[in-house]
Simulated scan of single mutants.
Amino acid sequence: MLLRQGLTTYRFFKITWKLDLLMIGLCTAAYFTDTYLLPKMVVPATLPTLIGTAIAFFIAFNNNQAYSRWWEARTIWGALVNDSRSWARNILTYCNTDTSFDDTELKKLQRKMVFRHIGFLYALKAALRKIPSDEFAKYLTDEDAKKVTGYANIPSAILDLQAADLQLLSEKGVVDGFRFMQMNGMITNFCDSMGKSERINNTVFPTTYVYFTRLFIWILVILVTMAISEHIGWPSIFFGWIIGFVFHTTHINGMSIMNPFELQPAGISLNSITRTIEINLLQMLGDGAIPEPVKAERNGEYIL
Rank of each mutant, 00 (worst) to 15 (best):
D165W: 03
T208W: 01
K14W: 13
A266T: 15
I237G: 04
N280W: 03
T149P: 04
K107I: 12
A56P: 03
K196M: 10
C95G: 14
D176P: 05
S133H: 09
Y211M: 09
W71C: 01
R74N: 12
P293K: 09
L121N: 11
T35F: 04
Y94Q: 05
F216R: 00
M183Q: 07
Y302P: 02
T249N: 07
A296K: 01
D176H: 09
R298T: 11
A73E: 03
Y211R: 11
N96W: 05
M113A: 05
I303Q: 06
M258C: 15
L166Y: 06
L263C: 08
M181K: 05
A66H: 03
H251S: 13
I51F: 15
T207D: 10
I118T: 07
T274W: 02
E278Y: 10
Y139S: 10
V175H: 00
S100L: 14
T35M: 02
G25C: 11
P235W: 11
T104C: 01
A29S: 12
F120A: 08
A296W: 04
W70G: 02
R214C: 04
I187Y: 02
A227Y: 00
G177F: 07
T46H: 08
K112G: 07
T213D: 00
R111H: 11
V114I: 10
Y31Q: 04
T75A: 06
T93K: 02
M226E: 08
I187Q: 01
I24E: 07
F61T: 02
